[in-house]
């Protein structure tokens, strides 16, 4: 028993090995390897097109990798379908919100809670109860009975998070949750994510273009460029890493990506 729990705690929650995805000759993700420990808050950054969303799609089963493996709690999940991965405890949000428009906000959140119950992840609570609690947590309880389609963008972003939380994940993948939010909304959401993470039991990977927020929240940052991992470290280390600065400024200024860098797998014409 003690040995088993020791083995569990020493093993990372998520292990990604040699993950590769080719789209018609273009490699969106290239030989990507990293691990995430239980209870960690990891930020994933990179210039546009670096492969962040593709990486999320590979982790959650929405895309099949060309090569490589993903292990979650030591179990191979490569090739599983998205709902199976969600049931194992990995939930995601979508960068572009995808509400069930004609359903009420409460129903939107009840669906994943019902599925979590089927998967044995609700610990005896009713899906309805869990859904209401989650709405309360993200500050959407007052909208519970409105059709999701009526919500403004900022609240739809919260609904995405609520739906992911209602699946009772141990690993939460947030794909640009701050996209399109006002300054005040961003600050409130940052606070919310901090609180959710602070409650414990949750491991988070955050993809975000608003770097300041990401650096504030993350304990460790992974940097992708052209589908490759080019840096990994604390927010402070990463933001002073010459390779990272090169990737960002090079991409931003030349518009054609790093030219003298040898690591340019997307370089096939």
């Amino acid at each position: 028993m003690a040995a088993a729990s020791l083995a569990n705690s020493s093993r990372p929650l998520l292990e990604v090995r040699g993950l590769t995805k080719h789209f018609a000759g273009l490699s969106a993700v290239n030989d990507l390897s990293f691990t995430v420990a239980e209870g960690e808050f990891v930020g994933l950054i990179g210039p546009n097109g670096a492969g962040k969303t593709t990486c999320f799609n590979l982790l959650t089963g929405f895309l099949r990798p060309t090569r490589g493996s993903v292990r979650f709690r030591g179990v191979e999940i490569t090739g599983l379908r998205p709902h199976q991965i969600t049931r194992l405890g990995i939930a995601r949000t979508f960068q572009l919100v995808r509400p069930f428009g004609q359903l009420s906000v409460l129903d939107n959140v009840t669906v994943p809670a019902m599925m979590a119950q089927q998967a044995g992840r609700l610990a005896g609570h009713s899906p309805r109860r869990v859904a209401l609690d989650v709405l309360d947590m993200v500050g959407l309880a007052h909208r519970a009975h409105e059709p999701a389609a009526n919500l403004p963008h900022g609240e739809l972003k919260r609904l995405e998070i609520a739906r992911a939380l209602a699946a009772r994940p141990s690993l939460l993948l947030l794909d640009e949750p701050f996209g399109g939010l006002s300054h005040d909304e961003s600050r409130a959401l940052e606070q919310l994510i901090r609180e959710l993470f602070g409650q414990g039991g949750l491991t988070v990977i955050l993809v975000e273009h608003v770097l300041k927020v990401l650096m504030n929240l993350s304990q460790r940052v992974l940097v992708l460029d052209y589908g490759r991992l080019i840096a990994s470290g604390t927010p402070d280390e990463v933001s002073h890493d010459p390779t990272v600065i090169e990737a960002y400024l090079g991409a931003a200024y030349s518009g054609a990506g790093p030219q003298e860098d040898d690591a340019s797998p997307g370089g096939n014409p």
Partner: peptide, 11 residues
């Protein structure tokens, strides 16, 4: 409403 989102919700 959205079958990808339903999949993501565990359906």
């Amino acid at each position: 409403a959205d079958d990808a989102a339903a999949e993501a919700a565990g359906v």
